[in-house]
Amino acid sequence: MIEDYLFHLTFLQILGTALGVVQVLLARKNNINNYIFGIGSILISMWVLYRSQLYGDILLNLYYFGMSIYGWFYWKLGKQKKTTPISYSSKEEHLKALGIVVVCFTLMAYWLKFHTNSNVPIWDAVVVSFAWAGMWLMAKRKMENWIYLNISNVIAIPLLFYKELYVYAGLTIFLFIVGVSGYIKWQEILKNEKIEQPTTA
Rank of each mutant, 00 (worst) to 15 (best):
Y5R: 13
L112S: 02
T10D: 07
W132Q: 14
V178M: 12
A97K: 02
I189H: 01
L26Q: 07
L95Y: 11
I44S: 02
I58D: 10
L9R: 07
N153I: 04
L62C: 14
V126D: 09
L137T: 09
M1Y: 01
K79I: 12
F105P: 02
S41T: 06
A125F: 06
W146C: 12
W132D: 11
S52I: 05
G71T: 12
N34R: 00
V167Q: 06
Y63F: 15
Y74W: 15
N33E: 05
V22C: 04
Y183P: 08
I184A: 03
S89L: 11
W186A: 04
T199N: 10
H8S: 06
L12A: 07
A131M: 07
W123T: 15
T106G: 15
C104E: 00
S45P: 04
K185T: 14
G170S: 05
E193H: 05
I184M: 10
P85F: 09
G78K: 11
K81C: 08
H94N: 15
E3S: 09
V126E: 08
I177R: 02
Y166R: 11
H8N: 06
D4S: 07
K29C: 01
T106I: 14
N192D: 11
H8R: 08
T172W: 01
I157T: 13
W75I: 12
L15W: 00
V22S: 05
V101T: 08
V101A: 03
G16D: 03
Y168R: 04
P158W: 01
E193L: 02
I184E: 06
G71Q: 12
V48C: 01
T10P: 01
W146R: 07
S41I: 02
